[in-house]
């Protein structure tokens, strides 16, 4: 099963728009002055997300289900949800600087999606894809996108904190939103990510129970996924709980979100490379 020419064209168009948005956001920072056409990068982003939405729609229609079973599907949905969240965020909070990172990631993700040779999704059981599994994959990918956003705002928080303490006032400093805004966003994205992750794991356990009669997988590859998921979940639970302790505000919370995303992303990559088709495939 290969990628259809129409889907490929739509993805290429989307990546072109994302690149355009990335360049426009970058020029805003480099040129230091207020942008002449402030809506141009957002418009490019909207164009990209429309093309990618169509591509995802075609992919789901082509497969006959909405599960994300290959790395290219995970990446495509991941970048799409990132851009969509950013567009909402930009509308609400005007965190323009985030656009630079989001569209950079979206561009490279769609490039990778185009580059990765497509193979048919294979499940070790060979069973048809059910609704529970589809929901599990979608929720986990949304959780990863939320974690990535928390990671990005946390990095910005640490950069701004560093600039404020070292008295560095450059163009980048001028573009970063306030520490309070970034801390609030980090809090929100970590919380949302935790909810998605918990719900995603919950659906995976129900699916496992329905399929194999037990909630914990027996096979070694399944165990690997399970251990990774539990690790990520624990770290995220810690982030959310620890934030309730007033000492872990701002900087500490930013460090937690950064490590949370890194473990999350590492788990996904380990699953992709080492689970040998038992989970999702390359």
């Amino acid at each position: 099963m290969t990628i259809s020419p129409l889907e490929l064209l739509l993805l290429e168009m989307a990546s072109g728009f994302y690149l355009g948005a990335f360049i426009l956001y970058l020029s805003e920072i480099l040129l230091s002055r207020p942008p002449r056409i402030p809506w141009a990068p957002v418009t490019a982003g909207v164009g990209g997300v429309l093309f990618q939405s169509l591509a995802i729609f075609i992919r789901f229609g082509f497969q006959g289900h909405v599960a994300l079973l290959s790395l290219r599907e995970v990446l495509s949905f991941f970048s799409w949800s990132l851009v969509l969240t950013f567009l909402y965020l930009e509308h609400q909070k005007k965190v323009r600087i985030l656009g630079l990172f989001i569209f950079g990631i979206a561009f490279f993700s769609t490039l990778m999606v185009i580059g990765i040779s497509f193979r048919a999704p294979v499940l070790s059981s060979g069973a048809p894809i059910g609704l529970l599994l589809s929901i599990h994959t979608l929720l986990i990918d949304l959780g990863l996108a939320s974690a990535a956003l928390a990671f990005m705002v946390s990095v910005l928080y640490l950069v701004l904190d560093h600039f404020l303490r070292r008295k560095i006032f450059n163009r980048f400093f001028a573009r970063i939103p306030s520490l309070e805004t970034l801390d609030q966003l980090n809090n929100n994205f970590s919380g949302i990510g935790f909810v998605f992750l918990t719900a995603g794991l919950f659906f995976a356990m129900i699916w496992s129970l329905e399929k194999f009669g037990r909630t914990l997988p027996l096979a070694s590859q399944g165990r690997l996924a399970f251990i990774g998921a539990i690790l990520v979940w624990l770290l995220y639970a810690m982030t959310v709980l620890v934030r309730r302790n007033r000492r872990f505000r701002g900087k500490q919370a930013a460090y937690l979100s950064i490590s949370g995303f890194l473990v999350f992303a590492a788990t996904m990559l380990v699953l992709a490379f080492f689970s040998k088709g038992s989970h999702f495939i390359l």
């Binding site: 701004l160 404020l164 400093f173 970063i176 939103p177 306030s178 520490l179 309070e180 805004t181 609030q184």
Partner: peptide, 9 residues
């Protein structure tokens, strides 16, 4: 202006 870099509102 620096205060605005720390506080949102």
């Amino acid at each position: 202006q620096l205060a605005r870099k720390i506080f949102q509102d």
